[in-house]
Nucleic acid binder design. Sequence first.
DNA 1: TAATATTATTTGCAGATACAAATATCCTCA
DNA 2: TGAGGATATTTGTATCTGCAAATAATATTA
Lengths: 150, 150
Amino acid sequence: MELGSYLPYLVNRVGQRFIARITPVLNEAGVDVQMWRVLIALYQRGARPVGALADLTSINLSTLSRLIGRMEGKGLVERRRGDDARSVIVGLTAEGRAVTERIIPVAADLETDATDDFSEAELATLRQLLIKLYGGMTEDPADKDDRLAG
Amino acid sequence: MELGSYLPYLVNRVGQRFIARITPVLNEAGVDVQMWRVLIALYQRGARPVGALADLTSINLSTLSRLIGRMEGKGLVERRRGDDARSVIVGLTAEGRAVTERIIPVAADLETDATDDFSEAELATLRQLLIKLYGGMTEDPADKDDRLAG
DNA sequence: TAATATTATTTGCAGATACAAATATCCTCA
DNA sequence: TGAGGATATTTGTATCTGCAAATAATATTA
């Protein structure tokens, strides 16, 4: 195996660079990368039980529980009891939404900046292939048959 | 901004899935994801001072220092003094190399598995675009002009 | 060449993470 | 309807992480 053409390697090193670049932006806004994951997940998908949010973000459930506690302390999210009182629904507060919307344009610039040399066609192809790749990967490889969606 | 087509998002969620999949394989071999990063960096690039290894892996220097200590304890790497005695050169031991080479084929299968539905052309395009993207991103965006390589 | 600055790594410490156990609620069926 | 099991989340605890300070060695310069 040639590591330089190994897909997980190629994907993760780009991902890490994106993270390295967005981190200062996030810190300025008083959040970290994990909180940002939660913010965009909630922003995109709406309020969710903790467990569903864990699936969505791939953050460990106990870690997420405490992370939500910290975000609650910052006024970014709020917890409420679900209809099923075992579950706790987490949703953005107005401030959480505002912070997210403040970061988004900076994040968008970051992408633009990184893809200076890309044609529109290349960019579209890259997006499409990444979506396809993700779609082809279930969380647990054993589930390959009953895959429904991301 | 539509998050579903936001490149850092698309890249990182695929990267996370790869990590989720390789983790059990690594654990079986007694290493974690960070150790794996160090192993492949050393395997690919050869022995390096701690600082250079930190750059290569994007692992924080103090974290890396202690990580190397743990890996040393497992017999995977060894430290030796550099010509400049301020630096510490880290290199794979025979066992570290053996462990790395034992994991590599499993990691390769993981890629094959994830790209079942990809044509050779699509796979090649994806690789090429990821390499190009990485090349267009310096660690520090301010360095955009004096970029040399990854 | 001795004092000071610079570079490379390690350690002190506070906070974050993940596994496993504990807690809280719901569902089933006798 | 209430006992036992299933599901959802939180907490106990040991380990890992990263910032800043400490340590160690090399370069500079007066």
